[in-house]
Amino acid sequence: MGIKSFQGKRDTSQGKESVQILVSDYMTKKLITFKPEDSLDHVIHLLISNKISGGPVVNDQNELIGIISETDCIKHISESKYYNMPSDSNNTVAKKMITNVDTIDKDMNIFDAATKFINSKRRRFPVVENGKLIGQISQKDVLKASLNFKANTCK
């Protein structure tokens, strides 16, 4: 008679009842991304036309290498005017993007993600798996998850 492992058989419904709403359940998968060689004029156009405030920068292998935001573009505009430089010098994403990017795990509970948002004061986090960009979670996505959770538990 062998000893049975308690990890061998799991009741999958148990995890659902203990509020396992994951980042992957609410993250945006269809993203507007930028390349390091893109011009800031191109970035500004896409930010305005898509009503977004920033986006991930990826290389040809779809690996996350940075983030470019409205603030980065505004800094460039401000520096160009201040130093009386033509607006197209240093006008690439690679020169203005943030490269130290904080990411979030797709398997993180959405409520833990909410805490990460509060502690970081960020509006969005890229989601990376094996170095590749697979999505993005925003504060708005966390709010949607909370409404859905509330609707499902108040029945």
Rank of each mutant, 00 (worst) to 15 (best):
N50H: 15
K9R: 14
N59H: 08
L143R: 04
I74A: 12
K51V: 02
I68F: 07
S80V: 01
L47R: 01
N119F: 08
I48F: 09
L143P: 00
A113N: 05
I32H: 12
R10F: 12
D102N: 04
F34Y: 11
S49P: 01
S18G: 01
Q139Y: 10
R122L: 15
D112M: 08
S13R: 13
F117M: 05
K140G: 05
L46F: 10
F149W: 03
N100I: 10
G15M: 11
I74D: 03
T12G: 03
S138Q: 06
K132M: 04
R10A: 14
N148R: 06
R124F: 15
R122M: 14
N152H: 09
E37C: 00
F111A: 12
F125V: 06
S80A: 15
V19N: 14
I134R: 01
L147S: 03
G55Y: 06
D102Q: 13
K116S: 07
A145M: 01
V93K: 02
S53T: 15
I21H: 09
G135T: 03
I48D: 10
G135P: 02
T99S: 12
Q61W: 03
V19L: 15
I104Y: 01
S49K: 15
N148L: 05
G131S: 03
E37V: 01
V127Q: 03
N148W: 00
E70S: 05
H76K: 13
Q139R: 14
V101G: 06
S87I: 14
A114P: 00
K35C: 03
Q136W: 00
I98T: 15
N148Y: 02
S146K: 02
I104F: 04
S138T: 15
Q139A: 11
N152L: 09
D112G: 02
Q14G: 01
R124Q: 14
E17D: 13
V23G: 08
S120C: 09
A145P: 05
I77T: 06
T33A: 09
N130C: 01
V57P: 10
D88K: 08
V19R: 13
G131L: 07
D112A: 13
M108P: 02
K155W: 12
A145T: 03
Q139K: 12
A113M: 02
V57A: 11
F125H: 10
Y83S: 05
G15Y: 13
C73W: 04
K4E: 15
I65T: 07
N100P: 00
F125S: 10
S146D: 00
G66N: 09
V128L: 08
T28W: 00
F125C: 07
D38L: 02
N59G: 11
D88P: 00
A113K: 00
C73E: 08
E37I: 02
D41E: 13
L40D: 08
I110M: 04
C73L: 08
E79G: 00
G15Q: 12
N91A: 13
P36C: 05
E70I: 08
K4F: 12
K4C: 08
T103F: 07
I65H: 07
K29C: 04
D11N: 15
K51N: 14
A145C: 01
R123K: 15
D25E: 12
G135F: 05
E70K: 10
N91S: 15
G15F: 14
K96D: 01
N130R: 09
G54Q: 05
V128Q: 01
K9E: 14
I74C: 09
M85C: 01
L147V: 08
